[in-house]
Amino acid sequence: MDRRSFVIAGFGAGMLAAFPGFARAAGGTPKIGLVMKSLANEFFKDMQEGAVAYAKKRGGFELIPVGIQSETDIDGQIAAVENLLTRGVDAIVIAPADSRALLPPVARAVKSGVKVINIDVAFDPESMKKRGVDIAFVGPDNRAGAKMSGEVLAQALGRGGKVVIVEGNPGAENATQRKLGYQDAITAGGLTLIDSRTAHWETEEANSVFTDMLTAHPDIQGVMAANDSMALGIVKAIQARGKTGAIKVVSFDDIPAVKPLLESGALLATVDQFGSQLAADGIDEALKEIGGQNLTGWIKTELKLVKGKGAA
């Protein structure tokens, strides 16, 4: 490519980026971009597969799914949003890697007429106000879900029961909400919180960290784990200490790997947030907006408490 045609091509791409509506007018069926978090995570993988299956079943629109390398790849996600705008999508459904950092490109999209639906983790309300946008959030109430799970433990232990929380990644919104939900259950059920530590969502780390918590506090009666992967490691630690049944565990996510634990009673309860339907729900709302509706606020999605054999 010589220099002149390079400049022209660059100018053309710039025009498309500056006026997405211009590119959009060319297509017939609406295009919806789906911006996911890390597809290395079972939860988001399920969610994307659910969305692709839904797009095939429902028809009438084109779905462009994009993922990022890791949960915290904020730059990668910003680039993904910008690429979708260049491709002239009509709507974007996004599970933001950060509830503030993603707002600038997303607000720009809204102002250029692209419909945006927020799923999984909500954008920060203050930041939205500052940018002058009000984007609808479709997602589960993690705090309410954790409270349901925690209440099963509270019921099993009775007032005064001694519990610990094993947290997700510090700073992650869903980790924060789940911890708050567990604390709600602790307050409501009159439990005593002895210790609360992170194991970064990870099985092996949860195994080690909980083993050490148990050494420091041999009187622990119950554990609230922020996800199932960590519950797997915690249950192993309880078995190794010969305290199966004596220490009760509740958790969150309902991944297939915990089924045997629910059946044996090693895990008291977990919460299904129907992750595979979440992106599909978001797409539904996006189609409504393309159809002319203006959506705002929190559109809550279903949560289901899954009880194991050991639960009352």
């Binding site: 079972e42 797997l232 297939p256 790997a257 045997p260």
Partner: peptide, 8 residues
Amino acid sequence: TNARTIYD
């Protein structure tokens, strides 16, 4: 694994 956990 298609991002799934192997267990059991």
